[in-house]
Design a protein around this nucleic acid. Structure first.
Ligand code: MN
Ligand code: MN
Ligand code: ZN
Ligand code: ZN
Lengths: 141, 141
DNA sequence: CACTAGTATCAGAAATATTCTAAATCTTAT
DNA sequence: ATAAGATTTAGAATATTTCTGATACTAGTG
């Protein structure tokens, strides 16, 4: 809905060599506007109320294209769905086993390995799991 | 097939308060005997040649039960399947995007967080991704 | 403004991984 | 031997994602 986010999305698409169609702008904008690390289906449902509506296949295609081009990140760290993140700066995540939310946490230790046991390291993901602040509070009640 | 592994599996099951049925011993033995972090289906196929055969549902049920009781670990780090690990000591993993194999790598930095931004941390998983030694070699050829 | 070629989108079918269901089998205690 | 409870089973159901082939849009050309 936010015009300036849509502008930003369009610029990001162009920079990545992807033509900025209405559907792609909508999908990327939806991801840019949240810090909730949504799944493809969450984005599809969020956009479902828009006119014109966007098909599920296009949401998946767009997210996969953006991941391939390095514009966004995906993670299958926990739960059954792949979840997406528009924040590309290195950071870690906390996954709550109760409410299934994913929170950003600052990246620890500066050193990023480039080789391990002869394997070429291209990226690294650190995921903490447990109970988030809120769910922890509800447990005690 | 290895009798002593089956013995170990049986002991592990009893210790966890799970009755050591033939099927459960077979599933846990199969996992103990490999360092390949297999999926449920890989284990099912590996056991498929045994007489009597074990059903897919039992393989899934057993692995889920073992994860719940903290006997083994599961990870949905990458690829589409959940993969399992009988090694419970803290260690990290390297996932090869080409051959999809998962390798153990020593855990870095000793400090394990117990709380982050008010969230209660129960476990942490560090996953490196890239090209394994072998796939890296094949690329150059 | 047609016409065309290439791209993008679409709805629904198909594929994949996992869980569920309800019946059959095994175990244990009486 | 019987009954109660636990375990296993095959196949159905569900959930997520990808595929398919038809349609719609876009840009370039004459
Ligand atoms: Mn994030
Ligand atoms: Mn491991
Ligand atoms: Zn929570
Ligand atoms: Zn490899």
């Amino acid at each position: 809905m936010n015009k300036s986010t849509q502008c930003e999305a369009s610029e990001m698409l162009k920079r990545a060599g992807i033509s900025p169609s209405y559907q792609r702008i909508m999908v990327l904008s939806a991801l840019l506007e949240t810090d909730e690390h949504p799944s493809a289906d969450t984005i599809y449902k969020k956009l479902g109320t828009n006119i014109p509506a966007i098909s599920r296949a296009t949401v998946y295609n767009t997210l996969n294209l953006l991941v391939d081009r390095g514009v966004i990140h995906s993670m299958r760290t926990a739960g059954s769905e792949t979840r997406f993140d528009s924040v590309c700066e290195a950071h870690s995540h906390f996954f709550c086993r109760k409410c299934k939310r994913i929170f950003d946490v600052a990246q620890q230790s500066g050193e990023i390995e480039t080789e391990l046991d002869g394997h070429l390291v291209e990226s690294q993901d650190l995921v903490y799991k447990g109970l988030c602040r809120e769910c922890r509070g509800e447990m005690i009640k």
